[in-house]
């Protein structure tokens, strides 16, 4: 009895000492996470103060003043709507287009064409948003390609200034994101598909399965765990609709639809020297993200699917 009880901690220490190389290797990463993600959390206190840089932590405490301000500001409600809308569009487009492209590529028999298509589709991922925004605004200008094509097809008579159409803004952001990221996002699905046992396909073929039936019954179930994990992770980013593209493409005319929480925080927080408001906005975003992530994870577990944590 006692020898077993004695054994347990000894086992732990023994394990610890046998794995010490691994521990040493993970130490820098752990320190990195502590330093750059946990330590800055102390700055959240600013959200409950009238923070002035000269006074620092000694600034007066004001409780929930800035949160009350945020939620009574019409503009904040508007930017939240925009953020959620653009984020949902990105989420839905991101998954459907990436999975669709991955399935298509997987069915291409010629290896060279497959890798060529893959390379071309993921190259835009490496472009900076500044460049992408430049391309998009040139294409959408009144003498840009988009208007020329629509005119040639007889759909419109006079060119439309697309970036001046407030309601088009979300979709412009959505499709730009698809163009930039779709190739990159397929990589993980293609990797998951390559782990599916080829004998399953052979068996299905012998049983008389067509191409679509094989996709539905073998490929999709094969990558389902990957999809579920990615959905859970992406729900943790639902309050992040991106910053650069909205910041670079916004203008007075589309302001009601292009301002996201991040832009609001920059304009009314940082640029005004109102760090408390900026922190309150950022903190709200993080809290919503964490709640969504944990909920999705919990739901997924209840449904008997993959869990992240």
């Amino acid at each position: 009895m006692s020898s077993i009880a004695m054994n347990k901690p000894a086992g732990f220490w023994k394990k610890l000492s046998t794995q010490r190389q691994l521990l040493w290797m993970s130490l820098p990463i752990v320190l990195y996470v502590i330093l750059f993600t946990y330590v800055p959390l102390a700055g959240w206190t600013m959200a409950f103060q009238d923070f002035k840089p000269a006074k620092g932590f000694a600034s007066p405490w004001v409780g929930l003043k800035w949160f009350v301000y945020l939620f009574s500001d019409d503009q904040f409600v508007m930017v939240m709507r925009n953020t959620l809308a653009m984020s949902l569009i990105n989420l839905v487009f991101g998954f459907t287009f990436a999975i669709g492209l991955a399935l298509t590529l997987n069915e291409v028999a010629a290896k060279r064409i497959k890798s060529l298509a893959q390379t071309i589709s993921y190259l835009p991922h490496f472009l900076s948003w500044v460049v992408v925004a430049g391309i998009v605004s040139t294409m959408l200008s009144s003498d840009g390609v988009f208007n020329i094509i629509l005119k040639a097809l007889g759909i419109i008579k006079d060119p439309i200034v697309w970036l001046g159409q407030p309601k088009a803004f979300w979709w412009i952001v959505g499709f730009t994101n698809v163009w930039k990221e779709v190739g990159w996002n397929t990589i993980i699905y293609l990797a998951a598909m390559s782990t599916i046992d080829p004998s399953l396909y052979e068996a299905a073929e012998i049983d008389g399965c067509g191409r679509l039936a094989r996709i539905r019954n073998i490929t999709l179930p094969g990558i389902k765990p990957t999809i579920v994990v990615l959905i859970i992770m992406n729900l943790g980013w639902i309050m992040e609709s991106g910053f650069e593209i909205q910041y670079l493409l916004r203008n007075g005319m589309n302001a009601d639809y292009s301002q996201s929480i991040d832009i609001y925080v920059v304009n009314y927080g940082m640029r005004q020297g109102n760090y408390s408001l900026a922190t309150a906005g950022g903190m709200f975003k993080s809290v919503v993200n964490i709640v969504l992530l944990l909920t999705a994870n919990w739901v997924s577990g209840k449904l008997g699917e993959e869990k992240l944590v």
Binding site: N251, G252, D256, Y268, Q272, L277
Partner: peptide, 18 residues
């Protein structure tokens, strides 16, 4: 910075731009 006057001013500027 951060005063109600500055905030009102920023909002007015955003309004005319829009």
């Amino acid at each position: 910075d951060g005063s109600p006057e500055k905030l009102a001013f920023t909002k007015a500027q955003d309004t005319y731009a829009k």
